[in-house]
Amino acid sequence: MNVFFIGIKRTLSLTVAAIVVSGVAGFLSQVSSATAQQHNPHYWHHPRLPPGAVGSRKLQRGGPLPGYFQPVEIKAPAGVQVALSKADCFEQPQDTPLRAGLLIGAVYRLKVTNIRLAEGVEVFPTIELIDRLYTPIGHEWRFAIPIDLTEEDLKLAAEGKFITRVIFVEDSGRALPVRAEKSSENWFEAAPGDDPLAVADSLGRPVAILRLGGRLPEQGPDPFFFFGSPPYITLPKMELPKHKEEGNGVQILPPPPSEEPLPSSPEAARKKNKRA
């Protein structure tokens, strides 16, 4: 009998040790995972990282990012044409807005031509997606990240300046009470000594980096200039759905008549249903 009890005690000890280790490990993993996902800034990234570095490090953090084609909408002033690259050469320029699905972590080289008052000048910006949108099911292609190629930025790039635009999802709890314009989003200017990624981190969640100027293509094929020409998918243009006018207003029917008052609680409703 004593042997039986001692055996039970030893088994209990081993079981308890295993439960403690697994329980504590599980608890810590949950806490660390939640903490890591809640605080997800880019402060440790150097502001002068080359294109593709921030996105590739984002891919290493996990999540449903690899292989996802995030819709983007490239906007530019009227008349400006944009060409995407494919197999280390640019495709036919297209009018804007241009919608496409791009991979996260990859760098896409564009060619912007037909700039107003700077005809003949070409600008070669890059787009790097560093995060994605988590749209509800059925709205995957409806919401796109806007990439704004403003006229001012294009002219600055043509003059030899280097422009970095970090696009972020605005924190809805701290959103500016202004109406968003359809032509361009709200943007802020970062001082030359500041890190635009860190500034965007403080305002919301950065999702894309647009870089303009500073590099011209070499003569002949240059795969490094095109960053390997990552794949993309073309999306059709999408217009905002207009709200239907409903005439003189919506006719609201009165509530159905009831002889006895409705049950005061779900429990009373269940009892009433059971009686019925």
Binding site: F143, T164, F168, A190, P192, L197
Partner: peptide
């Protein structure tokens, strides 16, 4: 309501090109 709104942070630097 799913309604993301975007903003941007811009930085302009001078480069010694080429």
């Amino acid at each position: 309501l799913y309604s993301p709104r975007f903003g941007a942070v811009r930085q302009v630097l001078s480069l010694a090109a080429n």
